[in-house]
Design a protein around this nucleic acid. Structure first.
Lengths: 134, 134
DNA sequence: CTGAATCCTTTGGGATACTG
DNA sequence: CAGTATCCCAAAGGATTCAG
């Protein structure tokens, strides 16, 4: 049910996108909004991992390799506040916290997967085009 | 043909994504790479417009409303250097330049459209979750 | 173990002015 | 018309340190 306030509806048939933006009257676009959330440096990877199974904080910290505790925490909090990830605290000693995808988060993986497939299929082509001399 | 050098292949069936990242040996991920290109402030809108028909520079400038000549130029150049957009110069007086999607650019609209549909269908839900007290 | 706080650098992006 | 050049600001993100 793609009823929304953003101008034109999407059409998979002719490969158009819903009109996303302030082409006159709208200040923000939910599509760009979602795109920007998902496209920061670590979100995609975290969603990928959490799509497989729940993880604890330090498990993620080890799995991602390169992420700082600060960014891991920040990214997870954002995902949580967007309803894509659930955070469950076990009051053990030492404390343990588990993160898992919400149903909403799981539902996002499907369209994201389509885009990921495209990227995998075409990134060599893009890389080639980028390198050609001017 | 999702043959690539990035670990695990995608699976629409179980909604997993290809392993995107330096979980050990890879420094960059084509998926995140593509996501970041597409998710800057103006790219999605420009791709949307160009998905409908070719545009001239100032046509885009008027259509987008809010974009500066600088960002319009920069964004178009990036899209061009990634092989998503073609730029054709007509040596008229005054000069005229037309931008249109390449076949690669067109092919990107389909998976992007899937993600856009998801965003349209769920942005209200996300907005609601965000606002709930703590 | 699971973070929060602080500081710093890099990048994205807006405003304005100018040119072939 | 189709841009480029400059300057400036705000946001993203890394490094390091500290805490419950």
């Amino acid at each position: 049910m793609s009823t929304s306030n953003i101008g034109v509806s999407a059409s998979l048939h002719d490969h158009r996108l819903p009109m996303p933006v302030p082409v006159g009257e709208y200040e923000r676009c939910p599509v760009t909004d979602v795109l920007r959330q998902v496209s920061d440096k670590w979100t995609l990877l975290l969603l990928t991992l959490l799509g497989r199974r729940p993880y604890r904080f330090n498990e993620l910290h080890r799995a991602v390799e390169g992420i700082s505790p600060r960014m891991l925490s920040r990214t997870l909090r954002t995902l949580e506040s967007d309803g894509l990830v659930d955070r469950e605290v076990f009051p053990t000693l030492p404390p343990s916290v588990e993160y898992r995808l919400t149903p909403l988060g799981v539902s996002l993986l499907e369209p994201l997967s389509a885009l990921a497939d495209w990227a995998v299929d075409h990134h060599a082509e893009i890389a080639a085009v980028r390198q050609r001399p001017s």
